[in-house]
């Protein structure tokens, strides 16, 4: 008899002090929280069994995430609300499970589905007429920038097709929806550096406050919907 595969997708917030732990430490953090909460998690087979847990997209150290996502597999079904509550009792300040949803039998993993992400970037200074400058930039046919790849080789890439939406607010905040995931991926720092360079401004990424606000999959009709 085939065992039913029971999976859940957890959405969570990682912000404040918790921004300073990296992806591998976050994994460990979740594994321990699951243990303390006595969640009936499934383990992988093999010599070194580990919890069946997969994050949709690592969040870079220092960045806040308001709608991050992780899939877990359990040995038996647990009520979604209960799962959320039990895990939230184990979360430190800066971490919160915001939603738990049971996945359908044939649903793909978050990592496989992921197609785009929203970012909100608070700049290190006000830039006069920021919105106009962005609109002007949008008229360029190509956004060519240098990208450092493996073995420290740089190559020129056009990032414009990877930017789906770009807007600003009060000359100090930038919103961007950009390609994210295994198919096409743009890093937010690369986009920000391109924009700063374009405007002839000095760029120090560490001075920007970056928040990833949503992760999306792409529907058949081309529309983006949250994971």
């Amino acid at each position: 008899m085939n065992k039913e595969i029971i999976r859940y997708r957890l959405k969570f917030i990682k912000t404040d002090k918790m921004r300073y732990i990296g992806h591998l430490d976050l994994l460990k953090y979740f594994q321990r929280a699951v243990k303390r909460a006595e969640i009936p998690i499934s383990f992988s087979q093999g010599f070194n069994p580990h919890q069946q847990m997969s994050f949709s997209m690592p969040l870079p150290l220092g960045m806040s995430g308001l709608s991050e996502s992780v899939d877990i597999r359990l040995e038996h079904a647990v009520d979604c609300e209960e799962l959320k509550e039990r895990l939230n009792r184990q979360m430190s300040s800066g971490m919160e499970i915001t939603d738990v949803r049971k996945l359908g039998e044939n649903e793909d993993s978050g990592a496989a589905l992921l197609a785009a992400a929203d970012y909100t970037v608070t700049l290190d200074r006000k830039i006069e007429d920021l919105e106009e400058k962005l609109t002007e930039t949008a008229l360029d046919a190509e956004w060519l920038t240098e990208k450092t790849g493996k073995k420290n080789k740089t190559r020129t890439v056009d990032i414009k097709p990877l930017v789906y939406e770009l807007s600003s607010q009060n000359d100090i905040t930038v919103h961007a929806k950009i390609a994210t995931g295994s198919n096409a991926n743009l890093k937010i720092d690369l986009l920000m550096k391109y924009l700063y360079d374009k405007m002839g401004l000095e760029f120090d990424y560490l001075k920007l406050k970056v928040t990833r606000t949503e992760l999306y999959k792409r529907e058949e009709n081309g529309e983006f919907t949250p994971l």
Binding site: K17, Y20, L61, G62, S92, G94, L206
Partner: peptide, 21 residues
């Protein structure tokens, strides 16, 4: 905040561990 992003392993300096009093 800004300093923490410029040092190795910033989590050394933030507290907030499990079971912190």
């Amino acid at each position: 905040d800004e300093i923490l992003l410029r040092v190795e392993k910033p989590a050394r300096y933030i507290g907030n561990e499990i079971n912190m009093v």
